[in-house]
Design a protein around this nucleic acid. Structure first.
Lengths: 195, 195
DNA sequence: GAAAACGCATACTGCGCGGTATGGTCGATG
DNA sequence: CATCGACCATACCGCGCAGTATGCGTTTTC
């Protein structure tokens, strides 16, 4: 039941924002009442943290599954980017939730540390991909870490643009954005692969 | 007095967030009371919009002043970027306020439209700079609009990173970020200029 | 100089919602 | 079968705060 409540919290937070949802709604969404909710969580803040953890786990599992079947380092990197871009442009819940986290993180050190940790693991993951792809000759960068940092920043920015310009959430723009990220990473241009 | 209240609202919002500040505090900051505040603004929402307008105006005036004395198109672009990067990394109030706007814009169409309009004007401004610099030979891009879009996305992402990694707010990182943005725009590398 | 309009302060209301107090049900334990 | 604790529902509290009612001094208008 705690897991179900976390999932409900995430779903509602990612739809209406932290301040747009009250505890009654979350409990109701999980099929229980507020009294039960407070048996598992001490406060709304605890529930927010639980929703964050839910998000982190979900994200990392998804990205691992997506490239589990690929062996070629270049393809692994390329496919990871493609999935990430698609998520940025199409997964509105993701966009909304991360925006909420960011704003909260500004004023809440605990939430901020959680996101820092998550983001570090994502960065390490990408650096590993880039280094492997570099050895395989699919990438030409003299500073993988710097390139990944720049690319990740761009990706976050893309998410913001998607928020304000729904028209860029098309497959045409998807490709263009992907090309941009690949250029930032120093990837050697190759024909697109199916996603 | 409305202008003073807008400025107070902006200052406090940019420090504690929209939900971290109440109307009494804003009125007090402006040296009046809530009764007076409601004489000039019909609701807290109106005040938020006023704070946004305050921000838009301030931003555009500042950027225009910064490059007013420059004539060479390449230098104009380079200096604009330098100032923008410095703002992203050092101006914490700016970061906090824009984050707040973004989160609000997700759920509020009116705020969203306001930001879209502002962002469009910023984009046009940059495209103009890039095209001029391109004619002057300081930039090599076949698609200025696309390049500016990517660069602006990266800049927003940098702001986010600055939020979570205070250590990148150093002059060393500032230069590195600047180089990254210039590369995205396709600028021909030249020795740095004093800011 | 009366009256209207403006600009502000004081005091109050209403309510949404986070949090609590309490009691009921059901399975495990001995 | 008595008891204890995990799990959940109902009902309630209280507080922060957006928004309102009202009144008072000062300026403008004719």
């Amino acid at each position: 039941m705690p897991a179900l409540l976390s999932a409900s919290a995430f779903a509602l937070f990612a739809q209406k924002g932290f301040d747009g949802v009250n505890l009654d709604q979350i409990a109701s969404h999980a099929g229980v009442t507020k009294g039960s909710l407070y048996w598992h969580f001490r406060s709304k803040h605890e529930l927010v943290k639980a929703a964050c953890t839910h998000y982190y786990r979900h994200y990392q599992r998804q990205i691992n599954e997506e490239i589990a079947h690929l062996i070629d380092p270049g393809e692994r990197l390329r496919h990871t980017l493609a999935v990430a871009v698609r998520t940025c442009l199409l997964d509105e819940a993701n966009r909304v939730f991360t925006m909420e986290i960011f704003t909260l993180a500004v004023h809440d050190p605990e939430i901020r540390r959680g996101w820092q940790q998550f983001y570090d693991s994502v960065r390490c993951f990408y650096i590993g991909l880039v280094k492997a792809a570099s050895l395989a000759g699919a990438v030409q960068t003299n500073d993988p870490e710097q390139a990944v940092n720049l690319m990740l920043a761009t990706m976050e920015g893309i998410k913001l643009r998607a928020l304000f310009e729904p028209e860029i959430c098309s497959s045409e723009h998807e490709l263009r954005v992907l090309r941009g990220l690949e250029r930032i990473l120093g990837m050697t241009p190759t024909p697109p692969i199916a996603v």
